[in-house]
């Protein structure tokens, strides 16, 4: 079957099984390798993408439910208004190995877009579905604690 969706602003046509994972379609058919598989069962958040603006897990998302959806991956987020935040995310130590990073960037940006100055608790609530094994999360708090824009 064919599914029409918009990925990072571009209309795309994806052919596949209705129960194929969006994660695999992004990686194998659209060469968007930023979206990572960390567990394949909705525990780690590495595969997070925005679907119609909301963070969802692309490993749990069948293609049939992506029809007509607007999907934004880390590649899309990174080319948008997030650049100041991304730079700070690096300099504040939010990144080490980088495997969880795309999912964290996507979720964090979804938070900051709605709430440019989140509290520590709000950051914890938003990112509770994104596991990081390197940073102890403190670098992530440092970066998000300074808000969405460079001020």
């Amino acid at each position: 079957m064919k599914f029409e969706l918009v990925v990072n602003g571009n209309p795309v046509l994806i052919e596949g099984n209705p129960m194929d994972r969006l994660l695999d379609a992004l990686r194998d058919k659209l060469d968007l390798m930023g979206t990572k598989e960390g567990c394949g069962e909705g525990e780690c958040g590495a595969c997070t993408v925005l679907m119609n603006g909301e963070p969802v897990l692309s490993c749990l998302l069948p293609l049939i439910q992506c029809e007509a959806a607007e999907i934004e991956t880390v590649e899309g987020v990174a080319t948008g208004e997030a650049s100041a935040f991304l730079e700070r995310f690096v300099s504040d130590g939010g990144v080490q190995c980088g495997a969880c990073t795309p999912g964290i960037i996507v979720t964090a940006w979804a938070l900051l877009r709605d709430n440019p100055h989140p509290t520590r608790q709000e950051v914890q609530a938003a990112l509770a579905g994104n596991l990081c094994r390197c940073t102890g999360y403190e670098g992530i708090h440092r970066a998000l604690g300074r808000g969405a824009a460079d001020e």
Partner: peptide, 24 residues
């Protein structure tokens, strides 16, 4: 001092290729 890590931009941008991201 703490200059930004050179691999940082590719990691936050999702463009760094790990072992399973290489061409198939």
């Amino acid at each position: 001092s703490s200059p930004p890590r050179p691999d940082g931009a590719a990691k936050v941008g999702g463009t760094l290729r790990f072992g399973d991201d290489l061409p198939k």
